[in-house]
Simulated scan of single mutants.
Amino acid sequence: MTSEKLNSVEEKQNPGQLNSVQLNVVTLVNMERAAAAGSLADAMYMMDNSVGGSGQGTSHLETVCKQGQVLNWIIRPIDMEKRLDGTWPPMPKINNIVFLDTEAGDEEDVAERKIFTELKIYGMPDRMRDKFTPVYYYWAGTVLSTAKPGLYRYRLVVELEQEHTKEKLYLNTVDHPALRVLAV
């Protein structure tokens, strides 16, 4: 292959697709504490497998990632003991990940610029679930290859199923974790 054709092939590739290593952001929730307080403050702990991040084991994790990289947010309760009747406790679920406008100085405003594309689940996994099978919910997405390098704070919207009432409680993270996007 000539160097001219090789350069042409390299130009056509999406530079973000060069990041094949997926990152996992694991969130543990103390379901009883969160439900009793009506808040995720002191009830949520996050960790990831990124290199160079900070805040491991806290609610203000900073995950270092690259443009085009896939991230998987996995959430589960701290108490994962199977009950005597063979069922599992209610599982927390991430309903949404909202990126915040840190440039405006108000971290509660939603960012106008998109930096992330959600990856949808295909098929019908909910039909396969039953009370005897533990279910770990996750949220997956890709950092856009065009996202500017920088720090992007976000808020998790977490759904908790109440143990006895089966009502759902929706809570937002109090501290704001972040993605530190590096250029490819």
Rank of each mutant, 00 (worst) to 15 (best):
S3D: 09
S3G: 04
S3C: 07
E4K: 15
K5F: 07
Q13E: 11
N14E: 02
L18K: 14
L18Q: 14
S20D: 09
S20E: 12
L23Y: 01
N24V: 12
V25K: 02
T27D: 04
T27H: 09
T27M: 08
L28C: 01
V29A: 07
N30T: 07
N30S: 12
E32Q: 12
R33W: 07
A34Q: 05
A34P: 10
A36N: 03
A37T: 11
A37M: 09
A37F: 08
A37C: 08
A43D: 03
Y45F: 14
Y45G: 05
D48K: 03
D48C: 09
N49K: 06
V51A: 10
V51N: 11
S54R: 07
E62R: 11
V64M: 10
K66W: 14
G68A: 00
G68W: 00
Q69S: 05
N72Q: 07
I75W: 10
R76H: 12
P77C: 04
M80L: 09
K82Y: 03
K82L: 05
G86A: 03
M91E: 14
N95Y: 06
N95D: 11
V98D: 10
D101R: 00
D101M: 06
T102W: 11
G105C: 03
E107P: 14
D109C: 13
K114N: 12
F116V: 00
F116L: 01
T117N: 14
L119A: 08
Y122R: 14
D126I: 10
D130N: 10
D130M: 00
D130T: 03
K131A: 12
T133L: 14
T133Y: 11
P134L: 02
Y138R: 13
W139H: 07
W139M: 05
A140K: 13
L144C: 05
T146H: 05
A147F: 03
P149M: 07
Y154C: 00
R155F: 05
L156D: 11
L160K: 04
E161W: 12
E163G: 02
T165M: 04
T165R: 05
K168W: 08
K168N: 14
N172V: 02
D175S: 08
H176L: 04
L179F: 13
L179V: 06
L179Y: 14
V181A: 01
V184C: 09
V184D: 09
